[in-house]
Simulated assay, not measured.
Amino acid sequence: MTSPLLSLRNAALSLRSNAGDVNILRDISLDVHAGETIGLTGPSGSGKSSLLMLMGGLERATSGTVTALGQDLGQMGEDALARLRRDNIGVVFQAFHLIPTLTALENVATPLELAGAADAQSRAEAELQAVGLAHRMHHYPAQMSGGEQQRVALARAAAPRPRLILADEPTGNLDAANGAAIVDLLFELHDRHDATLVLVTHDMALAARCDRVLHLSDGALADDRARADLPA
């Protein structure tokens, strides 16, 4: 059996506060294999987003280990982590995090240019076309709807052709119709790039589209079930 793309072993995350340490995640152990789609569910405050951040090296585990794409994230410096994310991991947030002074095309192309990609412009154009924004390439974020801005964010995440896509409530700021369209695009992106997708969501119907559903409760992994094992 091939090695997992992501592996967490007894991973924990604590943050210091004036009242003492706050335990955000406790003793998380799981494997995610290449090509899987994972729905990450749980009530607000259960640690879903924090777990996603650990997976992408955006937070460091207080104890335990997090291995992504064969790299022990806890042993990597910030520059090495940034390169790993740039080349292999696409992150999509609830807030779009677009640069307001750049057009849609520039928002997607700039990370590729910083990585030294000679075909940055053509790849950015192709990804914007793939998310239905060929007619909006030269518009600025303020000139686009929320749904369109999230499509730009998806195109930016997809342009490096990542092996891993991490999506944190990507439909949280959108209405139902735009949210459904973004979800469809996420799964299309997963299929097109043969990527692994980990998706944080409160929507159990959306989570049920994934190969596996992980449920967090009070910072701990409470359930890990394949789609076939979920209630109909």
Rank of each mutant, 00 (worst) to 15 (best):
L189H: 12
D27V: 13
E127S: 11
E113R: 12
Q71T: 10
R192A: 13
Y140F: 14
A104W: 02
C210T: 12
G56T: 14
S50Q: 05
R156F: 03
T171L: 01
G70H: 08
A195R: 03
R83L: 11
A232D: 11
P162E: 06
A115V: 07
L102T: 13
Q150R: 09
S122C: 08
H190E: 13
A158S: 14
A61C: 09
L81W: 00
A120P: 15
A157D: 11
C210S: 09
S49I: 04
G47M: 02
Q121V: 15
E59T: 11
H215E: 14
H190R: 10
D119G: 11
R83P: 07
M204N: 03
A12G: 15
G35I: 06
V108I: 04
E125W: 01
A167G: 13
M137N: 10
H139F: 06
L206E: 12
V22M: 03
A109G: 11
A153Y: 05
I89W: 01
V183F: 00
L197V: 07
D194E: 14
L58I: 13
F96D: 02
G147V: 08
A222M: 04
N10I: 02
L105C: 05
M76H: 08
D229K: 07
N23F: 01
D229M: 02
P43L: 04
H193F: 15
V213F: 02
G39E: 08
S63E: 15
T2W: 01
R83Y: 01
A82F: 03
A155E: 09
G116T: 11
A12T: 15
Q121R: 11
K48D: 12
D119W: 01
S217W: 05
A207P: 14
L52F: 07
M1D: 15
S3R: 15
S46M: 05
T37G: 15
T201I: 07
V198H: 04
L6Y: 03
Q143L: 00
V91Q: 10
S17R: 09
S217F: 03
R9H: 15
A177C: 01
L221D: 14
V131N: 01
